[in-house]
Design a protein around this nucleic acid. Sequence first.
DNA 1: GGCATAAATGTTAACGTTTTCATCATAATG
DNA 2: CATTATGATGAAAACGTTAACATTTATGCC
Lengths: 338, 338
Amino acid sequence: MITIKDIAKAAGVSHTTVSRALNGSALIKPGTREKIAKIAADMNYVPNYSAKNLVTKKSNTIGLFFSSLEQGTSSSFLVDALKGIRQSLNENYMLTVSGIDEVDSYESVHPRRFDGLLIMSQSERDNRFIYHAKAAGIPLVVLNRQLDDPSIPNVASEDRRGGRAAAEHACEMGHRRIAIIEGRQGFKSADERRQGFIDGLLARGRAPDPLYFAQGDYSIESGRAAMEGLLALNDRPTAVFCCNDDMAIGAMNACYERGVRIPDELSLIGFDDMMFAAYTNPPLTTVRKSVAGIGREGTELLLRLMERSDAPIEQRFIGCELVRRESVADLRGQSRRS
Amino acid sequence: MITIKDIAKAAGVSHTTVSRALNGSALIKPGTREKIAKIAADMNYVPNYSAKNLVTKKSNTIGLFFSSLEQGTSSSFLVDALKGIRQSLNENYMLTVSGIDEVDSYESVHPRRFDGLLIMSQSERDNRFIYHAKAAGIPLVVLNRQLDDPSIPNVASEDRRGGRAAAEHACEMGHRRIAIIEGRQGFKSADERRQGFIDGLLARGRAPDPLYFAQGDYSIESGRAAMEGLLALNDRPTAVFCCNDDMAIGAMNACYERGVRIPDELSLIGFDDMMFAAYTNPPLTTVRKSVAGIGREGTELLLRLMERSDAPIEQRFIGCELVRRESVADLRGQSRRS
DNA sequence: GGCATAAATGTTAACGTTTTCATCATAATG
DNA sequence: CATTATGATGAAAACGTTAACATTTATGCC
């Protein structure tokens, strides 16, 4: 293993000079720098990060913590987030991935081990972890879940706007009996999407009907179960907004089983726009949320916070966009007359 | 930041003793050890891994490298793999995740930075990376892709057996015109699954028909395109084996569009058994492969290799299992007479 | 050409551990 | 009781780097 001292010897300078040259210090003569750079390259020098980190008191590591790897809410999540994060993360940062729930002693979440934290959070249960990390003084940004506490940097999607867009779309298409299958209780995103849904209904002059609020938990099965309840209603809804695509798929399955045709007999709107949404039968109209975008912006924010501790603490929310496919029927015309 | 010297002072011993006590050295009196452990806990001591690693020449880090984060072949892959890996990985190992293609200088893949490598590989293009890491002397195991080189530790699924099971199942159900939509060219798994398919046909006395071999690339779209080709044939197949579930979904879409009913007019078999396979319309019969299992076993193998450099280099292959759902029609009876 | 200043390089200590080797106390041995 | 082995602890060095401070060399100015 070759060190800067070896390079120093080869170059006939002190190891300090080598260190400076390799780190781009301004007080090294260009000639010297080039010479040293060349020698280092020739010798295949690779810096020892342990030594480096020891003296600089950095860890060179960003930790990505996930609400729960085990009961992975949605699988494409991680991949998309990772894509976004990697796009804005310098290659020589290490990025570690762990589940919050698998951290059994918070000790290991320590400023010495992480220069910064990206926390992909889903529910308030993660707060203990978040506040621990904050108390430990590690720069962090919470992704994906909207926080109430303005002292914590936060990047999430505009769930409420998304829910609203879904409801408004249903109304615009002439639907009047519009139901919702809600996300997991206690998850902020579930609250927001529901509230957006209500807002949208109200904005179009429709009163939300308590009968049409079905509880789900973001899982496929919960979507199916909730839809079964909805289908059993005397006055079936004509459109159902599912608070994520997984539940929409479950809901579709309930319809397949009962021979309820989509969108002729029932319209469906999802949320997330995961890859398969375009390939369900029929293709699912859904609200697109960019997890990669959240990852990207979150990382940029984190980097800023790490660089200067006085960087502003931002709460940024990324827009959602309704993508129309074929799971919503156009009832206009009929509805006028009904 | 508190160090072992602080603990030493508090305990009235030398920092060497503290180090030994905390690391479970046999030459510390039990009483001393407990006393020190207590003080360390009280002071919230957290070891400085940079210092530790500097002197032990370890990195405490396992690197998980992925063929390609960008064009993520299948999104649940990463999550499943991570689950398996984490199950068998001691919590105080750091696990970093990167894409092979995003590593632009192989320099950073160095024994100093990684104690071991888990390489989730898809194609031979990863070989450069693999052999670089091997040459650098980092213990590694290649996951998910079967390797020809017996000098490299390897854990993958029995793709060939899986392909064979699919073909045999189709035959057993009375199908005679059986097609395949192949995986991406150059991917070992694609070759293996195709070969297994051929083996299965042959074992049941059916001759593979070149007309029924359609090329795909594991993407949804390629599945759809390939299926369209197959549907245009004069003598349509009655069953199609898709080399992964994504392509099966694409294939289903082609059928939906043309009004071809599954399984009545066409039977479909997938591969992977991803989460959504049970929720397609109809539910997809497919070959289950345990990515988590591969991750788990691969990690265990890696740990063994890291511990003792003379540990045996194993190539382990994990069984696949056909899971029967509703996308394959039973043609027995008819086929006898035809 | 001498002097002040700036630019470039070198010396040394420090970061927090583990490890080698030395020392001291204690127990076992005859 | 002296001697030896052994069990427990300590002192000092080492790991590879950066940083504070010191020194040398080059540059500009009158």
